[in-house]
Amino acid sequence: MSWSTWGAQGLQVLVILILAPLFAAWLQMLRAILQNRRPAGLGQAYRDLWRLFHKESILPEEASWLFRFSPYILFGTKVMASAIVPVLSIALPLARDADVIALVGLLAVARVFQVLAAMDTGTPFADLGAHREMLVSALAEPALLSAFFILSLLAGSTSLPSIVLHAQEGVFTLHPSMVFAAAAFFLVLLIENARIPVDNPATHLELTMIHEAMLLEYSGRHLALLEWGAQVKLLLYVSIGIALFFPWGIADHASASALLLAALALGLKLLLAAPVLALVETLLAKKRLFRVPEFAATAFLFGVIGLLTQFILGA
């Protein structure tokens, strides 16, 4: 591996870390416009992170080392995931050694530490949020794996670059199983990122919140890392969906010109993906809590139907 390829690898991670707050702010801005509210602007997410990083971190009296170190572990796993997902190029050093199982495993590690840290505080709201998170993820993770396995069967490999390369070569080929995989992945995207109709990241109602309940005891730089990590996770999921189902523009080598074109293509796709998410979150209402597992089960059902379609029709 040359230094240029490792430089491209670092560039991809840096691009994701910088673009994540911007994409979250763009999504919030579109939601506000669709709901006839005044948007805060594209720089609000960066200002919030700057403010949190400069505030003091207050720790619960009974919290252990797990509570203190979990934000760093969560943020680190998101950075590692951003290094193995082929966002700009399929020829990056770390992307060649990673597959869909490793990606799901990284995301699962982050969830486990977040849940354990929430339960470590001993507060009732954090404990409720942790239990709700595990209840929903018990169906969301199988749905995500089933969507990945459909694409892996089509490509003949669980390697993410191989799947993206197969999707680029068969761009005009219609596979019925991919339709179910795309539907399952989109529902999982909403579930994993605490978006409406599963959860509302802007609410603090104790009867409905899931993700936010696990963050109530955090403050300062710890909360900044968690919020930044959540933004990176949202961008990663959108980027994975783009790479798997709309792979046009992803570079097959790590030259400067190819990476520049890939970055422009990524920016255009993100610009168009945000209105879709904002429209979905505006048109749909927040589901009641006991209906959320049914929503996750629907995603898993789409994945199972896609797998059956692949095995029966071979397409």
Score class of each variant (00 low, 15 high):
51 R>I: 08
52 L>A: 03
54 H>D: 07
54 H>P: 10
57 S>G: 07
58 I>T: 15
60 P>W: 11
61 E>D: 11
62 E>T: 14
62 E>G: 05
63 A>H: 13
64 S>C: 03
64 S>I: 08
64 S>A: 02
66 L>H: 07
67 F>N: 09
68 R>P: 04
71 P>K: 15
73 I>C: 08
74 L>E: 10
76 G>I: 02
78 K>M: 06
81 A>C: 11
83 A>K: 15
85 V>E: 10
87 V>E: 03
87 V>S: 02
88 L>Y: 15
91 A>G: 05
92 L>D: 04
95 A>L: 06
97 D>E: 13
98 A>N: 14
99 D>C: 05
100 V>T: 13
100 V>F: 11
100 V>S: 06
100 V>N: 10
102 A>K: 15
104 V>L: 12
104 V>R: 12
105 G>I: 03
106 L>C: 01
110 A>S: 13
113 F>Q: 10
116 L>F: 12
116 L>M: 05
117 A>Y: 08
118 A>P: 10
119 M>D: 00
122 G>F: 01
122 G>P: 07
122 G>H: 03
125 F>I: 05
127 D>G: 01
128 L>S: 05
130 A>W: 07
136 V>K: 12
136 V>C: 04
137 S>N: 01
137 S>A: 03
140 A>V: 10
146 S>D: 00
150 I>R: 10
